[in-house]
Design a protein around this nucleic acid. Structure first.
Length: 605
DNA sequence: ATAGGGTTAG
């Protein structure tokens, strides 16, 4: 580092500075300064002021390669009012009015949109109108739809809308504000649509979970091969869509495409692929890709660890974490989220607490609401319900959100803890966050202890309040087609075969000792009625269908929109043993791997 | 020389 002697008076009097003699810098020293500036993202304010003084003294600041970087650094290092003072000085003082490019660099570095707008006004007052990129920068921070519309109007007035960069920035703002149609309209009006424009549109669909549109757009894009080519980002976005959709086949097609185009080695693409495989229940394949990835980043490790955790491989997740530490990759908050969820899913209570302490003490990471969520889940599953409640109400350093309460409610359901369940519901109501699923959990809690009066009471309450429950739905992917089942479904073209198969399965399972768990049925029917209502839950229909169409050696893969109910869990467990089939069920939160009469998760009985 | 992107509890 060059010596940066402080020169406090230099800052105090800009006019004096303007008169100060400027030695001519050599090209070598100017490139050193540029490199120095480019390498630092932010400095402590005092250190920045020293650097400022030095650059002024040596005249290096007047050279164009270092000036934009310097101004960005100013914005990043100083409190905004001081940064603006520095920027002001360079805007008004000689040697010259900064170029539009310089102004854009400053704008980019201002994190507060209000500062950016003030700066823009000053810029215009000094006669710099800015270009399309200037407007695009203003769209970069998360600006709301109103702001976007305003800048949209400016762009139209100044004739910048033909600029692809500006148009795509606008599209992104509309899409993020939930206005997918607005984004689409801009896209359709673009004279030339580059890959980024397509990607922004695809990202908008992925974000709004319009997965079918996502896949359609990819097809459309590929049909215009002469005009535009999908790039690595396109592949990442598509893999993301497959992850939320659980669309394994399509995901593998995207992967093959990425390899064909030469993106297969890119770390970010590989990380998305690891996530896709994990979230589709193919954790072995995810692990295989992970192993073959040479330069694993903290994201690769975290993705793999959460993937193993979600699939019930808690011990493997923990040994991966230990391996990560040994290979000198520093874990971050997300890594610990994965590790803690591994502990909660596998019932590793002591380890969970140990990792939580490790995170706070050894790695100095501040626990966030997700970390606490895992700990609450961990304690709740282990039956430490009152302790978990204490943690949430007294010890947590962050405000509990609805999910924390819902986690605790799930634990009340597992352990039939009625009193706490009622208390938790009142917290959810207080947060105005109660959902139909929460009342169902409470209802399940009453059902677990056989309090049918209370069950009826909750049902009545739900009816009065007009709370609609989501119907349970199970899907099976077969030959690239998604088959959907709901309870007592008679819509499927092969319904007769399916019901016959299910009756046959039921007979076999009963011989093997499966007893329907009537507490899973919510309706207050007599015992026999309950049993028959249970028989045709969507999951069982889906299993019967899958048994008809999947070859013996392949796993049966189901996806559920709700949690697996206790009876279906038990049913599937016994089924996997009798029929010697691996069944992988993805529910709202994770995967259940059923094999040989057992399940990978430990909280159903 | 500037945009768009990867992991994240239940």
């Amino acid at each position: 580092m060059p010596s940066l002697a402080p020169e406090p008076r230099a800052m105090a009097s800009p006019s004096r500075l303007a008169r100060a003699p400027r030695p001519r810098p050599t090209p070598a020293s100017s490139s050193v300064a540029a490199a120095l500036l480019a390498s630092a993202s932010a400095l402590p304010a005092r250190r920045f002021l020293q650097l400022h003084a030095h650059l002024l003294r040596t005249g290096l600041l007047a050279l164009s390669p270092s000036a934009p970087a310097f101004l960005s650094l100013a914005a990043a290092s100083l409190p905004s009012h001081r940064a603006l003072a520095v920027l002001d000085h360079h805007l008004t003082a000689p040697p010259s009015l900064p170029s539009t490019f310089k102004c854009n660099s400053i704008l980019r570095a201002l994190s507060d949109p209000a500062d950016a707008l003030r700066f823009l006004r000053r810029m215009r007052a000094l006669g710099r109108r800015g270009n399309a990129f200037t407007l695009a920068i203003l769209l970069t921070p998360r600006c709301g739809p109103a702001h976007a519309r305003q800048l949209h109007a400016n762009a139209v007035a100044e004739g910048h809308l033909r600029d692809a960069l500006l148009a795509t920035s606008l599209m992104r703002c509309y899409a993020n504000g939930g206005d997918g149609d607005g984004a689409r309209k801009l896209f359709d009006e673009m004279p030339v649509r580059d890959a980024v424009a397509w990607n922004v549109l695809i990202a908008s669909c992925v974000r709004n979970r319009r997965t079918k549109d996502t896949l359609k757009l990819f097809e459309e894009m590929r049909a215009r091969e002469g005009e535009v080519q999908p790039d690595d980002v396109t592949c990442i976005l598509l893999l993301q869509a497959c992850t939320t959709l659980g669309a394994l086949d399509f995901g593998e097609r995207v992967w093959a495409y990425a390899e064909e185009r030469g993106y297969g080695g890119e770390l970010k693409v590989r990380n998305s692929l690891i996530a896709m495989y994990s979230r589709c229940g193919c954790v072995e394949k995810a692990y295989c890709v992970f192993r073959k990835t040479p330069q694993k980043s903290v994201v690769s490790w975290s993705t793999m660890i959460s993937g193993l955790a979600a699939n019930g491989f808690g011990e493997d997740a923990i040994s991966s974490f230990e391996e990560m530490i040994r290979s000198d990759v520093a874990p971050d908050e997300q890594t610990f989220t994965g590790v803690l969820s591994a502990c909660s899913h596998s019932g590793l209570v002591d380890e969970g607490f140990r990792f939580f302490d490790m995170m706070c003490c050894e790695y100095r990471l501040k626990p966030n609401v997700r970390h606490y969520g895992c700990i609450v889940d961990l304690m709740g599953r282990a039956g430490l319900l009152d302790e978990a409640y204490e943690l949430v109400t007294k010890e947590m350093r962050v405000a509990p959100d609805a999910t924390i309460w819902r986690t605790l409610l799930g634990a009340c359901r597992i352990h039939g803890h009625v009193d706490l369940g009622e208390c938790v519901i009142s917290h959810l109501i207080e947060l105005k966050a109660q959902q139909a699923g929460d009342y169902v959990l409470l209802l399940n809690t009453y059902a677990a202890v056989g309090d049918w009066n209370k069950v009826a009471e909750v049902r009545k309450l739900m009816k009065e309040k007009g709370i609609q429950t989501t119907p349970g739905c199970t899907t099976v992917e077969h030959n690239g087609e998604v088959h959907e089942f709901i309870a007592d479904d008679d819509a499927h073209p092969r319904k007769v075969e399916i019901y016959d198969k299910l009756n046959e399965i039921n007979r076999h399972l009963r011989i093997a000792g499966y007893v329907p768990n009537v507490s899973s049925e919510l309706h207050d029917l007599d015992s026999e009625g309950k049993e028959s209502a249970l028989t045709y839950h969507s999951e069982k229909l889906a299993i019967a269908f899958a048994l008809l169409v999947t070859p013996q050696h392949r796993p049966i893969r189901l996806a559920k929109n709700l949690r697996v109910c206790v009876d279906c869990h038990n049913f599937t467990k016994v089924f996997s043993g009798i029929y010697k089939r691996l069944v992988i069920v993805r529910d709202r939160t994770r995967f259940h791997h059923f094999e040989g009469g057992k399940c990978s998760c430990n909280d159903y009985w």
